[in-house]
Nucleic acid binder design. Structure first.
Lengths: 207, 207
DNA sequence: TGAATATTGTCAGATTCTTCACAAATAAGA
DNA sequence: TCTTATTTGTGAAGAATCTGACAATATTCA
């Protein structure tokens, strides 16, 4: 597989999501022009993005929806069955653990860590074992490369530990700033920043 | 104010976040090179981004942290005190409503809508009035331009209604796909897609 | 089977975004 | 006050990304 640009990478989950909906609606085949209206991405961009994975379509016909879904699902890691951990079982952490149409879509949250595991384990809504954060090293699942960070503070310290334990990717819900160690990557999920961007854009639009 | 690119726009909240932390640590002045290490964005990019707002720095000196914060806060809409609504008071919706270091950072969530408002209003954690979704039109706050969408399905219908009521921006937590009406903008906050991207990137890194 | 039609895959040009390099301007020290 | 050391702001080069155009190829229908 050739080099896939960051921009393209960000669009793959968008395609997958749209294709799943189309499939649910009983649609079996689709053309780039049609899909374009659906996802708001130009047909040419779609075709180029797809072509980076392989020859997925048939000229004069289009793409087979279910075939695309299974290819994207595989490419996006659904078949890796990635083992993940979650750190910080507060309100947001709990919401994520409970998020249901989730399991095995991108992997599985194996266990969680918190500073008050006794309390967290008593909450009926938390459906994976919660260990004390000091047990990070001993309880870390084998081959775990992804950690979801939902703690209010002290991120840097934890991130450094995770790095030493072989974690490669962080999904960051923390609003705190931290320096990313060499070789790690992260994705920020920041509701406040997202809203700020949007407010800014909406306001500059109407000026 | 000149045209500010989308890429730059996405970085403004990052700067603001970092600057707030620096200010908390008692740091009064900063140079682009220093800030760069902090936010992992090249100094030149920082300077260019800043220069689009105005002449914020002093040559041979740097930038005044608190001055930058107040400028960014204003530019990012904190002073707009944007009125927002939230739709879908499930687990995630509740987590967002409760998210505390939130209020007046990008505006205020005035009220929420759900299909079972009676139940939601009884939950002690929900701190704004919850109305039935059918009352959207009558209960919509004046001048509300931003809606936060946390419903599991039926997004398209709601989005169309919001559009008719003058909403310009959607913060979308829905995994469902919908077509964005003309003149609206949205930002997706999708944990699953985010993880998928990350898994994909981590895996293609090690291959 | 063959011609007409449709749609992909891809090259090259256009656009957007990033970064280098340096002049302009300020601060600090003698 | 004058000189030196800094650091910003920005024009222009460079990189990444997007998109128009069209050849290549499959499908469909006579």
């Amino acid at each position: 597989m050739g080099e896939i640009s960051k921009a393209t990478l960000r669009r793959y989950p968008v395609y997958l999501k749209a294709l799943r909906k189309l499939s649910d609606e009983g649609i079996r085949k689709i053309m780039s022009a049609e899909l374009s209206q659906y996802v708001d991405i130009k047909p040419t961009t779609i075709r180029r993005d797809f072509s980076l994975i392989g020859q997925l379509g048939k000229q004069g016909y289009g793409y087979d929806v279910d075939e695309l879904i299974s290819i994207f699902a595989r490419e996006l890691g659904e078949d890796y069955d990635e083992k993940m951990i979650l750190i910080g079982v507060g309100r947001l952490g709990t919401a994520i653990l409970n998020y249901n149409n989730w399991n095995h879509v991108a992997g599985e949250i194996v266990c969680a860590f918190d500073i008050i595991p006794e309390k967290r384990n008593k909450e009926p809504k938390v459906n994976v074992p919660v260990y004390h954060i000091s047990q990070l090293k001993e309880k870390m699942p084998k081959g775990c490369e992804i950690a979801i960070l939902c703690i209010p503070s002290g991120a840097q310290e934890i991130v450094n530990q995770l790095h030493d334990l072989g974690v490669k990717g962080i999904v960051n819900f923390t609003r705190e700033h931290f320096v990313l160690p060499e070789g790690m990557m992260k994705r920020d999920v920041d509701v406040v920043s997202t809203i700020q961007e949007l407010v800014f854009e909406v306001n500059s639009m109407s000026r």
